[in-house]
Amino acid sequence: MDIFDTFLNVEVMQRTFPMLIRGLWITLQLGAASIVAGLILGLLLAMARLYGVAPLRFLTRLYIDIFRSIPLLVLLIIVYYALPFLGLRLSPFASAMGALTLVSGAYTAEIFRAGIEAIPKGQFEASAALGLNPLRMMADIILPQAVRIVIPPLTNNSINVVKDTALASVVAMPDLLKQATQAQALSANPTPLIVAAIIYIAFLWPLVAGVSRMERRFAARRR
């Protein structure tokens, strides 16, 4: 009885639900924007890493290693609290999206690179022998094949990005977690936090299950 009043209080739920939905909307916007920007950044980085001139390849590798090493929370705090000292003052949304994109781009670049490197050399040679230029070769022959390979790891990465949006609450971003903590303070009851957790799970579980299914299918085909 007590435990339901504390953690799953229906009256609190009803009162704070609109706040949580507003937070969810911001979480989804932030997640989607960062995922898309991270994909574009990652593809460009992968191309530079694979086909750039030597100095560019080196710089890209440096970038990828650094942004895979730095804790996202640290990066986020630097972007939001340290950059203003350089005169660069970003909104909470821009800071969060920036930090998420920089890190997601580094991971995505490695995923794309692995996908492209998994395409047999003969595919590159046949395209070149037919006279396709490097851009067409990528767009028509290599990437359509690589995409099938990278969809499961890219989905995994996207799940991580959505989960990491919760960190944005430390830069005053009114995302799902921030709204939940505020609702909890206002109602003096932790129910909103539990509801927020359920909402996160409800959105991400299907994606997690989808990745497992895709991985099983790809593994079966390879056999």
Binding site: G122, A126, L130, G131, R148
Partner: peptide
């Protein structure tokens, strides 16, 4: 040159997609 020279490989190298 590549547009004028056709090539056939030992392992076919057709585009599977």
């Amino acid at each position: 040159v590549r547009a004028e020279v056709g090539m056939v490989f030992q392992s076919f190298n057709l585009f599977p997609h």
